[in-house]
Design a protein around this nucleic acid. Sequence first.
DNA 1: CGAATGATCGGCT
DNA 2: GCCGATCATTCGA
Length: 206
Amino acid sequence: MSLRKVLLSEDVVSLAQILLGATITTHLDGITTSGIITETEAYKAPDDKGSHAYGNKRTKRTETLFAEAGTSYVYLCYGIHHLFNIVTGPKDVAHAVLIRAIEPSQGKDQMWVRRAIKSKGYNLTNGPGKLSKALGINKSHNAIDLLSIRSPISISLPKQHIPHKEIIASPRVGIAYAAECAHWPWRFRIKDNSWTSLPHDVKYDN
DNA sequence: CGAATGATCGGCT
DNA sequence: GCCGATCATTCGA
């Protein structure tokens, strides 16, 4: 089954889990960088108050969310960070999966150059703003067809899905204003993978 | 350690 | 004007 068909037919909450383990690759400025998706979040308008398209609100910004499955939705957060989403569902259904973290595979050195920070380790790509910067994604990559052969950004599903047992669900963060929707466990990450951001509600004792 | 803060922009009221 | 699907750094205990 083609990726587009999967993105069209499955529910966005399922897709957030299906996309775990998928590879995202960018070809920009003659540089190839790629990584495995380790953490995702589902955004499901119109009922989801955390979504920009809550209540099917259409503005210049949210219009991209209403595009057909396989379109990219990149938008600027806090004036600094470009957050990368994959639009899912048929045209006029504003569902999307936010990519929150990846495990780097190709072009790690170039990612560090793009990130330009002192620290190292998992810090490279374990957050939505971080991975976008590491992969060179910015708002010029909004509303492009990820499934086109010409796209500088591409997605490929893993040969085998991550088993359900290996997926951890938790509440979404950063959208406290979204009231009860903020508690919906629509954030997914691969168990025992260190290339994820820590769940905010879990404490580790050591 | 944790808390506070600065960075810095565009969409919305 | 205000504030967000954030992050890196500094400050204080």
